[in-house]
Design a protein around this nucleic acid. Sequence first.
DNA 1: AGGTGCGTTTTCTATCGAAGAAAAACAATA
DNA 2: TATTGTTTTTCTTCGATAGAAAACGCACCT
Lengths: 332, 332
Amino acid sequence: MGRRIHRDMNETDSAMQRGKKQVTASASTPRGAPAPSRLQAELAGRILHLLKAQGAGPGHHLVEHDLCQAFGVSRTPIRGALKLLAQQGAVESRANRGFVLLGSVKAAPQIEAANIQDEEDKQLFVAIAEARNLGRLPTQCTQQELVRMFGAKLATVGRVLRQLSEMGLVERKPGNGWSFIASIDSAAAQAESYAFRQILEPAVLLQPGFELDRAWAQACRARHIAFKRKPWRPTLAVEFFEMNSDFHEQLARCSGNRYMLGAVQRQNQLRSFLNYHWDYGVERVQSSITEHMAILDALEAGDRDTAAELMRGHLTSSKRARSPKRGKSFAA
Amino acid sequence: MGRRIHRDMNETDSAMQRGKKQVTASASTPRGAPAPSRLQAELAGRILHLLKAQGAGPGHHLVEHDLCQAFGVSRTPIRGALKLLAQQGAVESRANRGFVLLGSVKAAPQIEAANIQDEEDKQLFVAIAEARNLGRLPTQCTQQELVRMFGAKLATVGRVLRQLSEMGLVERKPGNGWSFIASIDSAAAQAESYAFRQILEPAVLLQPGFELDRAWAQACRARHIAFKRKPWRPTLAVEFFEMNSDFHEQLARCSGNRYMLGAVQRQNQLRSFLNYHWDYGVERVQSSITEHMAILDALEAGDRDTAAELMRGHLTSSKRARSPKRGKSFAA
DNA sequence: AGGTGCGTTTTCTATCGAAGAAAAACAATA
DNA sequence: TATTGTTTTTCTTCGATAGAAAACGCACCT
């Protein structure tokens, strides 16, 4: 999990993750290619995205300086990104005249790259979550024990532990060692989370500055509809969770209140830890989607009071509907 | 500012800050005293506190093992703390029979020690806040520039910067460098903060699990009264701010909802940055105190609805009453 | 001029070892 | 046996350093 928790109010100029280590290109690039850093890889995707948004056609000249300004970086990583795109065949390099676009931009290859926070951190994060939820971890342990147990690097463990402590899931002991909060996935923690969100999220919709991002709303609705059509498989749980998080987070973003947004993001992150193994029932997924759509309907109609009321109800019913089999799963 | 943001729901077993560097005792302890670590210094204070709470009298035998259990540490730091207390003359060491209390415990020497998060971090934090608010810092800079400008260590700068970014005050640029959020102390940020708190804090009082800590309420009231009597000096601003933060935070703690508590703590921390130079008007301080007391009254009478309403009003009036002279001051 | 190519400087991050503290194990004493 | 004194082991932090990227600046091309 990266060091970055909050995302910007406006995503476009959000800082990108930076690479931590070089993969000393060998398998992927047999030639002596200088192995693109993470920033460069990210920029490559963003450049395509930008080109698509600009509607640039074949032959379009990519001016380095403009790209620098667009993304707020120096020419070095931009050139790296362009080189990468050239390798992929998206653009072509012309001597002393820089790069030009070859074909027109098709599918912008997943901006997801933006979201892959340090793989290593994330893996450990997930591993700890799993081990903890499965009761494989004692309530107290030292960093070193985690290092040994998961074969991770000390620095990684340190970062993850800090993250967890910020989320209030783990706590430093006075001397050495850390202790997991007893109620890490207890019913109480869940109840508190819902109580908090029930206060917060309806209020979000009623903020004076609230303004629905209609483009997003449409996309979100489409995504929900598409999802609803798919036959349910447990594999979809991850996607459902992400859709869910996005829904709540984006609404918070529309409120224009950075602190509310931050609070919602925090809750999302927390839930992603607590529920790493989701256990949604099909019916709950369906009704959750229906409720989301109803909220969107109300918002698009400009009826924020109703939307807020629906949101409150949504968080209440989610609360009740959590699977009785395992106390630690809850959707929303 | 330490690495720790959240404090526990129950303070007693909260993890203590651990020392970062040894001061290689020389000036303070001419003898070859092994220079107590921060943990040890902290424990010394806590031991006195414990003794006082126990009503221990002169001659009381301090059993190491018990102290270990009381504070959740091993004997090593406990012994260090006792040695320290012996140097201070509070206890006496008897060969092979451990330590005994000398006189009865008087003023427990400031548990503040618990709160001095890493002095170094805090200083830098404050220095940056000040420089920023005075416009001495550009909106963008690198870690190294801060290192040079403030003569701090790179690691310290890194920690503080991370803190600030978590508070949403500063943000990493995609490549190298950080940029301060433009509206760091803008009216907009303040308005959003108040909007958030206006939703959150009244709701805190209405939580089903809310239970007033009556001992604290009394102490808090006394503190307010004492403060109100003092003739106002600008020097008191810091104390006022702390009293203020404590008031809001403790109420959140009483809600029993860890996420609400976390949110309030976060807001407090944020305000401590934004308002490093407070600019309260005397009259605002007075009315703020009055409002706090009214809220306490209502809570002690068990009338939480009224208390919530008063809290809402309190946050509204604080909002309006912020000094018109300088946009960046706001009390609450 | 506007832009690219390329070398130089600066900034950042990762890693490793050493030293400081804490924990744990052991020995000694009332 | 319950505590304290001492030693050993383990954990954590701090500092130095090297190597990778990014920022910068200058020459060159069109």
